[in-house]
């Protein structure tokens, strides 16, 4: 198995756990982003201020903000946390599929695929949970793309 396969497998395994903890039936792009943040090859991400805790805080902020726009408070109800048992999800959701499509389109061949391509595939999305969470948390997504792709901002 090539190094990139090991890397993607590790990211997906972490992402599955994040999705499971989230109660999600599918892996979405934001779960992959968290997977990248807790897997290896993440030093640049952490240097950019995107450690797992910062990403989780940004995602929670987006969730609460989106609910507030329709007058709903995420903290308004208090029920016991549901018990989560069984296997974490394996299916990719639409946003994760798009992230992989964008990642693969950045590399001409699979041999050229690098860990950063998946990160860029996630960051390239202009609509959805990840770009909204990053924007609300004050991250400059185009600058992050430039930084990780090695292009001048």
């Amino acid at each position: 198995m090539a190094a990139i396969d090991h890397y993607l497998n590790t990211v997906i395994q972490h992402a599955r756990l994040e999705a499971f903890d989230d109660g999600s039936a599918t892996l979405e792009a934001h779960h992959l982003l968290l997977g990248i943040a807790v897997a290896g090859e993440n030093a640049e991400l952490i240097a950019a201020g995107l450690g797992p805790d910062q990403i989780r805080a940004a995602l929670q902020g987006e969730f609460e903000h989106s609910l507030q726009t329709v007058g709903v408070s995420a903290a308004a109800y208090r029920l016991p946390k549901p018990t989560r048992v069984g296997d974490p999800p394996t299916s990719l959701g639409a946003s994760a599929k798009l992230a992989f499509d964008r990642a693969f389109s950045r590399a001409r061949t699979k041999k050229e695929l690098r860990p950063v391509h998946l990160l860029l595939g996630i960051l390239q999305a202009e609509i959805g949970t990840v770009p909204r969470a990053l924007a609300l948390a004050g991250f400059d997504r185009p600058a992050l793309i430039a930084r990780f792709s090695g292009d001048p901002a």
């Binding site: 109660g23 969730f63 609910l67 709903v72 029920l79 549901p82 949970t129 909204r132």
Partner: peptide, 17 residues
């Protein structure tokens, strides 16, 4: 985004309830 967040909140609420 509110629709997506409400669906997620409803799912969480249903599991717990």
């Amino acid at each position: 985004a509110a629709v997506a967040a409400l669906r997620r909140l409803a799912d969480q609420l249903e599991e717990a309830a």
